[in-house]
Design a protein around this nucleic acid. Sequence first.
RNA 1: CGCGGGGUGGAGCAGUCUGGCAGCUCGUGUGGCUCAUAACCACAAGGUCGGCGGUUCAAAUCCGCCCCCCGCAACCA
Length: 479
Amino acid sequence: MKNKFYITTPIYYANAKPHIGHAYTSVAADILARWNNQQGKKTFLLMGTDEHGMKIQKKAEEKKKDPQQFVNEISEEFKGLCEKININYNGFIRTTDKKHEETVQKVLQLLYDRGFIYKGTYEGLYCVGCEQFKNESDLVDGKCPEHGIKPEKIKEESYLLKMKEVKSQILEKIKKQELEISPEKRRNEIISFLEKNELKDVSISRKNVSWGVPLPFDKKYTAYVWIDAFLNYLTGIGWNGSIEQFAFSELSEMKWWPPDIQLMGKDILRVHASIWLAILIYLDIELPKRIFAHGHILSNGKKMSKTLGNIIGVDEMIRRFGVDGTRYLLISAGTFGEDIDITMERMVEKYNSDLANGLGNLVSRTIKLASVSDFQFLISNKLPISDEKFSEKIENLRLSEALEYIWKVIREDNKYIEDNKPWELVKSDRKNFEKIMEKLAFDLFVISELLVPFMPETSKRIKKALENNESVILFKKAE
RNA sequence: CGCGGGGUGGAGCAGUCUGGCAGCUCGUGUGGCUCAUAACCACAAGGUCGGCGGUUCAAAUCCGCCCCCCGCAACCA
């Protein structure tokens, strides 16, 4: 299918409630989806929840809940988050969906039959207390933080996915831009990582995790969550696990494939650029066109954490700044792709100056000028707005720059009003007054069009206010 | 010698690849305006671009060394 746009977010791990990072990724994805939709493309935004694995099993036990019930609740919370911040998703995949699980098993079997999965041994640090393998980064002073004991190095039988042999293929495809990884910085990182390191074969089975998809060829094991999770990008648009489905992709429900953009946090870029790509290559499925890794949200230069008490909640932001205000503040906080740093204090400032005093006040004063002088705006919904500079910024995911571009117009219009003094002209020179008002109306219309992906409700409200010549307070001052 | 990111006026950032008067927003000061959400506009103050050295007619930008902060170290989203 031509003229389509398929975008994915990572599926969110359902071991805890959603936080602002999830909102950030989701809003960005939503903006890109809405923008492409506005450009006349058929779009599909896929989101979802990743619901298997040891962590979830344990969390459910702690709360004395059945794991399925536990993830049902969390999954609803993630959907709720999407509603709250106005994410217009087209599909929401859950890895505990029956169809997804079946497809995962099919794929595992296929990879096994083709010899890409083999039985070997996995060596790792095993904590007897937790009954699971630990990462070195999980340890405190070389000990398990929960049990205070040193994990043992043990070997265990395990199923492994071959990685060594695909490495050069992955590297080549990235280098040849068959798959674009951006920002460029991240691309370079991945390339140098692949060039400098051997890719070890990855263990894809878990012995002590009952909450997972059983390996079809050895039911004693369940699949490691990543394998399960990655396939969501395929099952989420209706893949049933048969390779034939791709042969007629123009006609089948796989018409969305490949993803035009896969959006994710920088933390999971590396696993995507290795394991995920390996799976696709083994399955002979076309790679995504582009993977974009964004940065993390910091608060006052630090990761948000309960101990530091610097957590900023989505609900609180919505309460103070509204839905569109929250979307604006998240996206305008810094270059998309870099880490961004937010604090409540600065957000209040930015909200007041950009939204209340900037956009809100411009709309308000323009409409007041019109209504006291019986000027009627002619809203020309006929003209499709296309602004190349703006488009280019969005295509390159320079999202905050795109917003700055709009705000430049807002400032210019404020100056324009100041310079032309329409409140005087209305008494002396009606003709010129109308000329000025038309220019303002046109600009506001353009602004509202450009804002559609970023602040859909605000955009509608501006248009409505212009049509009805009705004064509005778009954004109340925040304290 | 593990890998990577960052250090730019009071705050937050852009600019570094491809060298050419140091840019944006906020805040501050002074003045102006009254259509507007005490909003808006103009002007001004404020920077040895982390440090030292090198290349160059010219360095925030290229090269070398050093200091400080922050991530990551793949089976952890």
